[in-house]
């Protein structure tokens, strides 16, 4: 099933998958991101942790331009997000061009956001058929393989309301993978789930990581971060407080705020 995702070779010298330089974002008068610098390498599982309100979800949503940044530079695979440099000046991209770029970036939401009027398989094939113009038959075949991969082939004809939270989230992952993304964004994918259902979703994510998918994960699952993560960033108050290897940061935090946060969640 390796053809379902694109394994990226670890290439330290290549262009980073996500690069942020001094990214700022305000909602009205409230500045949520106060200059974020970070770099996500290709094939890396990049974990964002921090207290709620620290701006980690907002930053994630900036990566696929669901939120527009107010300052700094943010690029995905070497291309600016939402803007284009032409003749030495920044130009905003048209809606159509933004949509074009989003095809390559999969996103999984805290509350799943499956389309409730479509069955699981219809959710999965919607974007390949409508956006990429794939034939229904081909998309369905690939969609079934993806549902099989997340362990839900037998639920293909169920509507989201007939699925548990964990099953809905796994369908949502299959839906994002159906676009063959080169980058996957996870926004607290297990926060809305019953504790006993979290494991199934994390298993699917672990499998994706093993295949070399580049992933940016906002999560409170420190076990997952330690085990699967290649890099970790601790954010608080709209700034990056501490970053490094997840195992080192989690076991030996350098900063007082990191220590205070980890003592509460670990």
């Amino acid at each position: 099933m390796t053809d379902l995702t694109k394994p990226q070779p670890q290439d330290a010298a290549g262009v980073p998958m996500v690069e942020a330089q001094g990214v700022r974002k305000s909602f009205g008068l409230v500045e949520v991101l106060k200059g974020i610098d970070l770099e996500v390498k290709k094939g890396e599982v990049f974990v964002l942790v921090g207290p709620s309100g620290s701006g980690k979800s907002t930053f994630l949503r900036c990566i696929n331009h669901l939120e527009k940044i107010n300052g700094g530079l943010l690029s995905v695979d070497g291309e600016l997000v939402g803007y284009q440099m032409r003749g030495g000046r920044l130009h905003e991209l048209k809606d159509r061009e933004v949509a074009q770029k989003r095809r390559d970036i999969g996103m999984v939401f805290q509350h799943f956001n499956l389309f409730p009027h479509m069955t699981a398989i219809e959710n999965v094939i919607e974007a390949p058929v409508q956006v990429k113009g794939e034939s229904k038959a081909a998309a369905r075949e690939r969609g079934m393989a993806l549902l099989e991969r997340v362990g839900l082939a037998d639920k293909a004809k169920n509507y989201p309301s007939q699925l548990s939270g964990g099953q809905q989230q796994r369908v949502a992952i299959a839906r994002a993978l159906a676009m063959k993304p080169k980058l996957m964004l996870f926004d607290e994918p297990t926060s809305a789930l019953d504790p006993e259902l979290v494991g199934d979703v994390l298993d699917v994510m672990r499998g994706l990581a093993e295949e070399g998918m580049t992933m940016v994960v906002v999560t409170h699952e420190m076990g997952f971060a330690r085990e699967v993560g290649d890099a970790l960033v601790f954010m608080d108050g709209g700034v990056v407080v501490e970053s490094g290897n997840p195992r080192e940061v989690l076991s030996n935090p350098q900063h007082e705020r990191t220590r205070a946060f980890l003592s509460k969640v670990l």
């Binding site: 696929n64 809606d95 949509a99 074009q100 989003r102 956001n113 919607e126 956006v131």
Partner: peptide, 23 residues
């Protein structure tokens, strides 16, 4: 219709028009 539906459709690369029509 909750805003999350529009966001999910946009995140999949769907256009404004298709989001309105299909979702």
């Amino acid at each position: 219709v909750p805003l999350g539906q529009t966001e999910a459709a946009h995140a999949l690369g769907m256009s404004q028009f298709n989001t309105m029509r299909r979702i």
